[in-house]
Amino acid sequence: MAFIGFDKVYKIYSSGVKALQNVSFSIEEGEFIFLVGPTGAGKTTLMKLINREELPTSGDIWFDDIHINHLDDGYLPFLRRNLGIIFQDLKLIPSRTVYENLIFPLQIMGIKKHLISKLSARILAMLEMENRKHHLVEWLSGGEKQKLCLGRALIHQPQLVLADEPTGNLDQYAAYEMVETLYLYCREEKASVIVSTHNDRLLKSFSGRILQLDQGHLVTDRYSRVRVKTGF
């Protein structure tokens, strides 16, 4: 069975908006996927369905043998602990420090203190934000906030990373760096990564599978192969 499976999934909001229509695909473990499409194509909805933020109107969604849409609410947190999510609106807590925001997933999982400091030090070094550790999030620039989201999504080494427009506030170079980090994480940890983006230049810079949505329909499912180290 596939790592993630969508089977004839429809999502129609109560307003009548048809966000997804008859979407079926499957993703294997360790795949790097670009989810592309214009605004309103259904990319965010698709991400929310995997995270069980939304339930499909019909159809089935599977994650690692778990039937997500029939999952009891009590098990939801345990599903989400397997995911690392970069939200489109970041969802950081502005009144808390960089460090506190970064370690939330580890605290939630009840990880021991010494391991938390070890993992957080590694991630802060990777993000080059060691000197920002005790700064409040509200003091950070847009790009730094985005980087922090990336760190929070990866710190607990999830099986699946969902990145919803993670490069929105970033310049081309920073956007490339961010996707490269996700790409390397996917390769090194054998985790699946789904990145939704509008940025065509990124698609040309990384090998991966491209799922294209348009008006809620999955219109393209193809692979692109490029040399990663090419850069911009």
Binding site: F78, R80, I85, F87, L92, I93, F104, P105, I108, M109
Partner: peptide
């Protein structure tokens, strides 16, 4: 509310 929703979305149980 916002903070609690974030906790929930990244896997916090209700007990937490």
């Amino acid at each position: 509310k916002g903070e609690i929703r974030v906790f929930h979305l990244i896997g916090a149980t209700e007990t937490f």
